[in-house]
Structure formats: structure tokens, C-alpha cells
Design a binder for these strands. Structure first.
Lengths: 111, 111
DNA sequence: TCCGTTGTTCAATATTTATTGAACAATTGA
DNA sequence: TCAATTGTTCAATAAATATTGAACAACGGA
């Protein structure tokens, strides 16, 4: 219910969204969120992308730009793509991004 | 014919494109290029967006990211959107960007 | 040739953004 | 209460980006 502060759907700005996605780490996070979109993910599921502190930073950027929603649940944070809001605001945008990302979903599938 | 150095269509990277567009000035430039897409524009047509030097900088960024093509012609530079290349590489992406931009094409139409 | 136009380059600076490690906070479970 | 898990905050630093003005270069026309 009570999620962390984020812009209202109407005030999500394109330039902010683009700037937020113009970073490999954050783009990868969004790519991972896009697949497995049924349920939310936690920060620790992105640890292969960087340090704990760094992820906290990048996830805040994504949230402030309006790309993700973060809902605290116990000691974890449930992170989800704001797909509906983004699709309404920027039709086709997210899909085009994700389609490109999906082409190379092989970063480093460490065993 | 001989245009300034730019990435080949195949090696245009999504994160670079997004980073290049994550700036109000550059996003505005691309928006202007998108309308009036019949012919190219010159740097000086963007002077209301910033200083001469600044535009040179931003246009280089757009070119290096693969968004625009720059062809010297006399003392001018003919700048055009690389729409075909971008559409092939990231289908739907440019259109979704431009559609949002088109909603507010009223920055400051100074007389 | 000289001048005006158009745009680039360079160096300096300012500003933003990203990365790190240490300390802390909140929650859960034993 | 104690310890482990999960994540945030802070301060310091590093690194990338953006902005400015002065000087320069290339071209075209008078």
C-alpha cells in the first residue's frame, strides 16, 4: 500500500525517464523487471549488477524518474515496473526498449 | 556524401541513444528534426535552444550516439535524423519519443 | 583580397552523476 | 534479547558532463 515517494503518472517527464535509462546498470534492471513481470523483485536480486549501495542509488533514480514503484514489505523492498503508467504516458516506448533489451539477455549467467 | 564520423547502424547502442536523449536541449533538437523531416536543418536553426558552442557540443553528442547525421555543405552543416537506421535497430522507439514530444511543441516561439 | 557567415576547438570551470565504505535502521526469527 | 537479513544514509571521492568565452578555420560573396 504505502509505497516510497514517486512522481504521479501525469508528471513523469520524458527527459527524466530517458536520462534514467541512459545507464547500463539501470537499463539492465528495467530489462530484468520487464521479463518476470508477474511479481515484483527485491534489490538483492540485482546484486550481480553492482554493489548493495550502488543498487540503492540506481533504484532510487529509477523510482524518482517514475520508472519503478517500490513497496516496503518487511525488511525487503518489492520493486515493480510502472508499466501501466508508462504505457499510458508514453505509448509504445517501454515496449520498444524492452524488445531491444530482450535481444541480448545474456549478460553473465554465472552458475 | 562525406558526412562526419558516426557509428554504423549496427553498432548504435541503446544506452548511448537513451543517454543522448536524456537532456532537454538534445531532446528538443530531435523533436525539431522530427517535424520537418523532409530536409535537413543547420545548427543555426537551433540557436534559440542555447549558445553556438553549446549546440556544437550537443550536436556532436547526438551524432556520436548515432541519432543524427551531419553533412558539411559549404560553411553549413546539414543535420538530419537517422530515422531509417534507428527504426531498423529500435523499431517503434523513435516514433514513441516523437509522439510525446509533439504534444507540447510550444517552447517559446519568440517573435 | 577582404569580410561576413557558420561552425569548431580549446582550456577553464562548474555542475552533475556515479562509486565506495562505514555506520546505521528496521524487521524477522531464534 | 540477540543475531542475521535487507536495505538506506552519509561523507568522501572520482569521474563524466555541461557551459563559457576566446581563438580559430572554412567557405562564399562583394
Amino acid at each position: 500500500m504505502t509505497s516510497l515517494p514517486q512522481p504521479h503518472a501525469d508528471q513523469i517527464e520524458l527527459a527524466h525517464v530517458l536520462a534514467a535509462l541512459g545507464d547500463e546498470t539501470r537499463l539492465a534492471i528495467v530489462g530484468l523487471l520487464a521479463q518476470g513481470e508477474q511479481d515484483a523483485m527485491t534489490c538483492s536480486q540485482f546484486l550481480h549488477l553492482g554493489s548493495k549501495t550502488g543498487l540503492s542509488y540506481h533504484l532510487a533514480k529509477l523510482r524518482e524518474a517514475g520508472l519503478v514503484s517500490v513497496r516496503p514489505e518487511g525488511t525487503k523492498r518489492m520493486i515493480s515496473l510502472r508499466r501501466a503508467d508508462l504505457d499510458r504516458r508514453f505509448p509504445g516506448f517501454l515496449d520498444s526498449i524492452i524488445a531491444c533489451q530482450a535481444v541480448r539477455p545474456k549478460p553473465e549467467v554465472q552458475a
